[in-house]
Write a protein that binds this DNA or RNA. Structure first.
Lengths: 364, 364
DNA sequence: CTGTTAGCGCTTTCAA
DNA sequence: TTGAAAGCGCTAACAG
């Protein structure tokens, strides 16, 4: 009965298709484009049942090699490929992973998105991308996540505890990238900001710097705050307190302005700690242009990240390089593991950064 | 009968859900997470039919305000949202658009992806992202496109005529970004490379430069080749021929190497035309570091794009800025138009770039 | 305005 | 190994 209804409908659709195709001229031998080719079409043509066709496209389904061969041949000829929506609807697996990233992060570290996407694609997983411009956009992005039944998500954007809880409620595996949850257990991959910043500051101290300034990030940035605190803590251990701190937004411009603000507070500044490379670059340019300083003789400036432009010969920023490749690989493999095994233990992986000596600071 | 089967199944699933939820401890008042909430759940709870629930989430469906209110209230309480897979499967609309971009493009112009995604999101369209690393990855990306029934696609990656034809066959509206199809009619949005490059070269000529060198892009880059040809043509009009051309890959490093290669060919080079800013920046650094040149006095270097770092004070690259915002807006609105109206005429929109005078070249 | 009904295209038991 | 049948969650006619 269901079959009959289906058959009737198919005929109707085919007519529509033919009409549509006729409207836009096409060579007579190109495939008909009117309606999507379904597994029923392939089944009919190959003289097997629809479920047999389905099995041919499923890994490890029991199907006779000869049948399989024949079906795949027909499928290829008709240009058939399983409909991902139908597959996802019935199997509960979409092979779709959501990537949440702030547009700021993407602007400063485009390689993160590229690497994550590449590694996911390598594992035959598609990417549903959400670039967030404001905190407020997270909720609507999450709403779409649930609707699209993604198999998992990687977030390089800030999520509140409530939002993290939603992932658990919806049973969507999640891996945080370069941020850890405050009060919740959540899988994450990050670069060790504390250790990196401590090393950097330690080396600045060893070189004899005593008058410091910090260009921090926005208050809601996890990595920014982590680095700021680590730097301040390390300085305090060395008996240096009352260090001026200004905040930027991780951009070049804010780095330049940050340096200017610090110089206004202390014209005899010896070392400036920027919590990311982009701001360090802005600070370097400002130090040269606006204050005529020569680095690293007159002033030391350090950054963090090891992003592309930091290594350009005009800057050679002294910094901590994040192992982006290893981190993205870890994020993806952790996520896949959690998708495969719902009970996988929550793991936080912390990667050490590598100190880049550069030429923008005197190190001890 | 179908109803009965469904009901039976629901009960079973609910039990599974409860068990699963019990396994991971949760406060007793948080919603049950075991099974997806469906429109049937909402319907039952609100005392209406399933289709009534569906109507509440459809724009402009006829539903009594009172009913709507009640249903939405229940939906909110149960945390219900329509399943995008099921919606797409039956309606033929997924509100999903594919974005094809090479990882190179994304690395050099991260704002393009961010802007496109933002504008699509603003129109309630989700983005399926494909970052391509090699030409060979296009076909498998396209295969996934068809499977996922995207409503349309924007490509900032190179597509062959055959590949373009597939879009027509599959009836997937497509807009090309910064590239036009060779032999096919295809909607596209681009920045006018020819006009921009001509203006730039014209100004260099007006300033008296006569010994030129060109750092071109890869042969398979549409924009790169367009700019190279435009520059050469304009020079030839001025009676300048035999201009040395070297090729880079749009990266900083290749720009530096390009400059070095050109200098090796002609040590008295007066002006270097780089087909993008990243290479111009590399060339500028190389000219300063490796050849001790001062710009723009000893040498003029121009780029193209107006990308972020080009405006940093260490470079101030003389360049042509692409109107990225207007271009991405145009691409998205053209695509939406083509999705809405299958018969929309194929349109090629060309945007003029803006000359940025910068400090890296003497202009006349 | 509302409910009933028939599928969208597929995977997955279950028998044969 | 294969086919029949059920149904994933939803929209869209169509009655009423």
């Amino acid at each position: 009965m269901a079959r009959q209804g289906r058959t009737r409908k198919e005929t109707g659709a085919e007519e529509t298709g033919a009409t549509g195709a006729a409207a836009s001229p096409r060579p007579a031998n190109t495939p008909r484009t009117g309606r999507r080719v379904t597994s029923y079409d392939v089944a009919r043509e190959a003289g097997v049942s629809q479920s047999a066709v389905s099995r041919c496209f499923a890994a490890g389904a029991s199907i006779a090699p000869a049948t399989r061969e024949r079906v795949l041949e027909v499928a290829r000829r008709l240009g058939y490929a399983p409909n991902a929506l139908a597959q996802g609807l019935i199997s509960g697996r979409t092979n779709l992973v959501a990537l949440l990233i702030t547009s700021l992060t993407n602007r400063n570290y485009p390689e993160v998105l590229a690497e994550l996407t590449r590694r996911l694609t390598d594992r035959d997983i598609r990417v549903l991308l959400f670039t967030l411009n404001a905190e407020s956009e997270v909720d609507s992005a999450l709403d779409q996540l649930w609707r699209h039944s993604v198999d998992g998500a990687i977030s390089a954007a800030h999520l509140s505890d409530d939002q993290l809880r939603l992932f658990a409620q919806h049973r969507v595996p999640l891996v945080l990238y370069n941020r850890v949850a405050d009060g919740m257990p959540a899988a994450s991959v990050s670069c060790d900001s504390v250790a990196g910043e401590r090393e950097l500051v330690g080396r600045l101290l060893a070189a004899g710097h005593r008058r410091f300034g910090i260009v921090a990030g926005p208050e809601d940035s996890y990595v920014g705050e982590d680095r700021r605190r680590a730097a301040l803590a390390r300085l305090e251990e060395a008996g240096i307190t009352g260090v001026p701190v200004v905040r930027g937004d991780f951009s070049y411009e804010s780095g330049a302005e940050g340096l200017q603000a610090l110089m206004a507070q202390d014209g005899k500044l010896e070392a400036v700690i920027c919590v990311n490379d982009m701001m360090a670059i802005g600070a370097i340019d400002a130090a040269r242009d606006r204050f005529g300083r020569t680095l690293p003789d007159d002033l030391s400036i350090v950054g963090f990240d090891g992003s592309g432009p930091a290594s350009w010969s005009s800057y050679r920023v002294t910094s901590i390089r994040q192992p982006v490749r290893r981190m993205t690989e870890a994020a993806v493999s952790m996520l896949v593991e959690r998708i495969e095994d719902e009970k996988a233990t929550v793991e936080r992986r912390l990667f050490a950064g590598e100190l880049i000596e550069g030429r923008s600071a005197r190190l001890g």
